[in-house]
Amino acid sequence: MELEYTTYKRSEFIETDTGNKVSRRSLISGSQNIVLGGKTIVHSKCTIRGDLRRAGPSHQAAVLIGRFCSLGEGSVLRPPYKTYKGTFSYYPLKIGDHVDIGENTIVEAASIGSYVKIGKNCIIGRFAIIRDCCLIEDGAVIAPNTVIPPFSVVAGGPPAKVVAQLPESTQEIFEAQSKDKYTKFVPA
């Protein structure tokens, strides 16, 4: 399936030295605590909460995002949190390379591996772990603390369930698609 070119107004996006394309209409809070690996597209109305991080002297990024990722319009990425003995703490949200997050999806996972596609209108619960090479179907609701094994197709919910397995060629296919999506996201 050949991807079409997607155009955008150059004035509506900021392009960084590492090739990230960030919409001026996205909400990035605590940018000093967010690491974008490079060649990542942050679409309009996307919210990334880098301001939600563990307090203390160790400066650890709140949100780490790999290379060739696409964060869909209206999506929300925020670090997971928990209360332990009366203390409220945030933990880092780590996203691998070649991850595509669909529109209006909420992510509060502990980690998302590389070569993962998450559909539109999904909810990824607190401290969920999605391993490499997974496909999360549109509208899936992944319960908190769930671990999704590699090469899984997940649908439904709550809670979402593994409904199929992906072939071993998934990594190459998702990598090619994410690079193609980035290459074909061009200024008008």
Rank of each mutant, 00 (worst) to 15 (best):
S152V: 03
N33T: 05
R24F: 12
I130V: 10
P150L: 11
K117P: 00
S169C: 12
A128I: 03
F127G: 07
E168V: 06
R10S: 15
G72K: 06
K117V: 13
D51I: 11
T18I: 13
S11W: 07
F151L: 15
N104A: 09
T83V: 12
L77Y: 06
S152F: 02
I124C: 06
I14E: 14
K117I: 03
A109F: 05
A128R: 04
L135R: 04
A62L: 04
I28E: 09
S169N: 12
K39V: 04
E103A: 14
R10M: 13
E73M: 13
I106N: 05
V116S: 00
L64R: 12
T146K: 13
V116D: 07
T146W: 09
L27A: 13
F127E: 13
L36C: 06
N20W: 00
S89D: 06
L36F: 15
E108T: 13
V186S: 09
S31D: 14
S23N: 10
E168A: 07
E15A: 03
L36T: 07
K181T: 05
T47I: 15
D97N: 07
A188L: 14
V147T: 15
I41E: 09
S89Q: 10
I41A: 07
T83E: 08
Y182V: 03
G37V: 00
A164S: 08
P144C: 07
A110D: 14
E103H: 15
H59P: 06
S44K: 09
T7L: 11
G38M: 05
S29D: 13
A176W: 01
K120Q: 13
A155Q: 12
S75G: 08
P92Y: 05
N121T: 08
A143M: 11
V42G: 04
R67W: 02
I106L: 11
A55L: 15
S169L: 05
Q171M: 10
I41M: 07
V116C: 04
E12N: 12
I28L: 14
V186A: 10
K39N: 15
F88G: 11
F174S: 05
E12G: 04
T170M: 01
R54N: 08
E15W: 02
S11Y: 09
G86I: 10
A61D: 13
S89E: 11
K117T: 12
S23F: 11
G139A: 10
V141Y: 01
A160H: 04
T170F: 01
Y5M: 10
G74R: 11
D100N: 12
E168M: 03
Y91V: 06
D100C: 05
I14F: 14
I123P: 00
I123G: 08
D138A: 12
V147G: 03
K94S: 15
E4P: 02
L135K: 06
V63L: 09
A55S: 14
C122G: 04
S44G: 10
T105A: 06
S114H: 01
S152W: 01
E108Y: 05
R53P: 02
P57W: 09
A143T: 09
P158R: 14
K181I: 02
I95V: 08
D138I: 03
E12D: 15
